[in-house]
Amino acid sequence: MKNIKISFVINGKKEEREIPPNISLLKLLRDHLGLTGTKNGCEAGECGACTVLLDGRPVYACLVLAPKVDGKEIITIEGIGEEGKLHAVQKAFLAHGAVQCGFCTPGMILAAKALLDERPNPSRKEIEDAISGNLCRCTGYLQIVKAIEASGKGGKGEV
C-alpha cells in the first residue's frame, strides 16, 4: 500500500506526515504524533472517548479517515489551555468532580468546548444534547453537566 503525504494544523502547529491511507485520525494522533490524550475507547464511533475538533467541530477521530484531514485544522485535548494553565472547562471539571476514571474526560471536554465556542451560555438541554455522543460510566453525567454549565456562565469555570 502506497503512503500518501498530508499536511494539517494540529493544535495550532503546522505538520506534514507520510501515512498509509487506511489509518484513522485516531491512529494518526496517537501513534504518529504521540498525542495520547485522545483516548481509544470502542474504535467504532459509539463511545466518544476519541472526540476531537476538526475545523472547530466535534468528530470521532476513530471514524475519520486520516487522509481526510489534509489541509484541515485539528484540536485535541493537548491543544486547549496552556502549559501550567488549564482551560476554563478543564478547571470546571475539576471543581465539580466531573472526572472519575478520566477516560471519557478529554472527549467530554472537547465536546463541551465546541458547544461553548458556539453558545457561550448554553441551556441544560443544549449541554445534554452536546454531550449525547459521549459516554461516561462513572459520574452519572450530572457533575459533567454542572461543570459545563458553570464554565458557560462565568466563563471562568468557577464553582
Binding site: 466535534p58 468528530v59 471514524l63 465536546a111 444534547d129 455522543g133
Partner: peptide, 9 residues
C-alpha cells in the same frame, strides 16, 4: 442520526 459527532461527518 447517531450523535453530534456522527452528524458532523
Amino acid at each position: 442520526v447517531g450523535s453530534p459527532q456522527i452528524r458532523n461527518m
